[in-house]
Simulated scan of single mutants.
Amino acid sequence: MAPQLLTIEVSRLDGGHVRLRLAGDLDYDSAPDLVAVAAELRGGDHQQLTVDLAGVGLCDSSGLSALLMVRRAAGTIRLTGVSPQLQRLLDRTGLTELLTVEHAEDDLRAIG
């Protein structure tokens, strides 16, 4: 199966809230794109950053590293749309201690 190119949609919402909606694979080839977008946002007036991962099919160690770099640049981030597979990866690596993950109630039942 061919890797899916990562697209990143930036939405500036009310109150300094910025949402990054990712679709595709967050891997070695695409992780630098996410880091670059976060670096561009660093100097802005946003106060809250949400990363929507619902459209991410694959996230490897480079993708996890990119999420940590985004957190470092932004201060705090919220992850939404986290698949059960990615949630298990975050749990196993201990990254749920550093990254805030928001789940819908249906998502919690699928993970549990």
Score class of each variant (00 low, 15 high):
39 A>G: 05
84 P>D: 11
41 L>E: 07
8 I>W: 03
75 G>A: 12
52 D>N: 08
29 D>L: 15
46 H>F: 12
38 A>L: 06
70 V>P: 08
41 L>A: 10
22 L>E: 09
74 A>T: 14
93 T>A: 14
85 Q>L: 15
37 V>C: 08
103 H>T: 00
47 Q>P: 00
35 V>W: 04
95 L>H: 01
26 L>H: 13
26 L>Y: 11
30 S>A: 12
46 H>A: 11
79 L>F: 02
92 R>A: 06
106 D>P: 04
75 G>D: 10
82 V>W: 09
12 R>D: 03
102 E>L: 08
28 Y>R: 11
45 D>W: 02
31 A>G: 08
110 A>E: 12
14 D>Y: 04
86 L>W: 10
66 A>T: 05
51 V>N: 12
83 S>A: 03
16 G>A: 11
96 T>N: 01
108 L>S: 06
86 L>I: 15
42 R>I: 09
3 P>Q: 14
100 T>I: 12
108 L>D: 04
110 A>Y: 11
43 G>S: 09
68 L>A: 13
13 L>K: 10
39 A>H: 09
64 L>M: 09
71 R>M: 11
16 G>D: 13
67 L>A: 10
79 L>W: 03
17 H>A: 11
94 G>D: 02
76 T>K: 05
106 D>V: 06
33 D>C: 08
16 G>W: 10
2 A>Y: 03
106 D>N: 07
100 T>D: 12
6 L>A: 10
100 T>P: 04
86 L>G: 05
66 A>I: 05
73 A>E: 08
23 A>Q: 05
66 A>Q: 06
15 G>Y: 10
104 A>H: 07
3 P>V: 12
16 G>R: 10
34 L>A: 07
19 R>Q: 13
99 L>T: 01
56 V>T: 07
9 E>K: 08
95 L>V: 01
71 R>H: 15
34 L>C: 06
9 E>V: 05
44 G>S: 15
51 V>E: 13
72 R>W: 00
93 T>L: 05
54 A>S: 06
89 L>M: 04
61 S>C: 15
41 L>P: 02
45 D>I: 03
27 D>G: 08
19 R>H: 11
25 D>I: 00
96 T>A: 11
112 G>Q: 12
22 L>Y: 05
28 Y>E: 12
67 L>S: 11
18 V>G: 07
53 L>D: 00
33 D>F: 01
18 V>I: 15
77 I>R: 07
91 D>T: 14
41 L>F: 09
4 Q>Y: 06
93 T>D: 06
38 A>V: 03
68 L>N: 06
51 V>I: 15
105 E>G: 01
96 T>S: 01
35 V>D: 11
79 L>A: 01
7 T>Y: 04
95 L>T: 01
33 D>A: 08
30 S>H: 14
21 R>K: 14
104 A>M: 13
26 L>I: 15
14 D>G: 09
40 E>W: 01
93 T>Y: 03
63 G>F: 01
89 L>E: 01
109 R>N: 11
102 E>I: 07
110 A>F: 13
35 V>M: 14
24 G>E: 09
29 D>C: 12
101 V>S: 00
99 L>F: 01
91 D>H: 12
15 G>T: 13
46 H>Y: 04
